[in-house]
């Protein structure tokens, strides 16, 4: 019979009793997370009924209503639901900040961080800035002034419960809507891929082909090219060209027959092969 755990604020270090103990702080956070979601739904309803009484202001209000639903209400509802039903272990997919399934993990690297970064930079990849209010403003400014912003941040995707450690990109002919980009996550110490392969880094590389409207999230996002293998092979080829000592082994059919959608609702197709690029040089 489950015993009620006493409220605790610190990390849970108690005895293993078979009863999952949730800290008091986590319960409070969970409550506020869900309550804020419910409050946001109510706010959307209020805005909707207010818009009916506005008459000529309704167009302006429709935009506010859409922003509210797409960027506040739906992400929070997705966040609540995906916490319940999306597994939090490795399933070959990164997750968006709302918990939806994001880009497929399609590349692995064995290298130190310095080796990986210097090879990427030698291969004409540009480090993407982190998402901050400052860089968000730079995106707006560069769009308005039509200047290119090579280091534009990429959206955060999560693997091992962490945001990507860093991301690199290549812009296509100064067109901000189209770009090559790849996110890297450092694997936890001692962690192995399914099948027992030990790698230092996992990466998800996709090609943004246009900016579009996602029917999944109702947000404006980059649409990615469905054939993620083309982008994966492009990244591997560019690394090999920049670092002649690099070696590639391929785990065949790592995620075979993989036809699905990413977090923005774009379809993904792949042959399922996972190249492991080794940049550590000859031992």
């Amino acid at each position: 019979m489950p015993r009620s755990a006493p409220p605790r604020t610190g990390p849970v270090t108690g005895r293993q009793t078979g009863v999952s103990r949730v800290s008091f702080g986590a319960l409070v956070d969970g409550f506020f997370f869900v309550f804020a979601g419910a409050a946001a739904v109510w706010l959307a309803v209020l805005f909707f009924s207010e818009s009916l009484s506005l008459g000529w202001g309704i167009l302006w209000f429709a935009v506010v209503f859409w922003l509210l639903v797409a960027y506040l209400v739906l992400p929070r509802l997705h966040g609540i639901l995906t916490r319940l039903y999306v597994p939090d272990y490795f399933i070959g997919r990164a997750r968006t900040s709302d918990g939806l399934l994001g880009d497929p993990v399609n590349l692995a690297v064995n290298a130190t961080e310095t080796q990986l970064r210097s090879t990427l930079e030698a291969a004409a990849w540009t480090r993407a800035d982190d998402v901050t209010l400052g860089t968000a403003w730079k995106i707006v400014a560069s769009t308005v002034t039509r200047r290119s912003y090579d280091e534009a941040p990429v959206s955060p995707l999560f693997l091992f419960g962490r945001m990507q450690d860093f991301a690199y990109q290549q812009e296509v002919r100064n067109n901000p809507a189209r770009r090559h980009h790849v996110r890297f996550w450092r694997c936890p110490d001692g962690w192995m891929l399914p099948g027992g392969y030990r790698v230092d880094w996992l990466a998800a590389g996709t090609f943004d082909k246009a900016v579009g409207f996602s029917l999944f999230t109702l947000q404006i996002t980059h649409k990615i090219d469905a054939d993620t293998d083309v982008e994966r092979d492009h990244i591997v080829a560019s690394l090999l060209a920049a670092e002649p000592a690099a070696r590639v082994t391929v785990i065949r059919d790592f995620s075979s027959g993989y036809h699905a959608r990413n977090g923005g609702g774009d379809t993904i197709q792949t042959d399922g092969d996972l190249p492991v690029v080794d940049l550590r040089g000859d031992p």
């Binding site: 956070d29 506020f32 997370f33 309550f35 804020a36 409050a39 946001a40 109510w42 706010l43 209020l46 805005f47 207010e50 009484s53 506040l72 929070r76 966040g79 900040s97």
Partner: peptide, 25 residues
């Protein structure tokens, strides 16, 4: 009645604050 003439603005602020501060980040 919760409209812009009454408390909709302050209610919106409260809900936005709650959404921002309860986010995972």
């Amino acid at each position: 009645a919760i409209t812009f003439r009454t408390s909709l603005f302050s209610l919106t602020l409260d809900i936005l604050i709650l959404l921002a501060l309860s986010s995972t980040a």
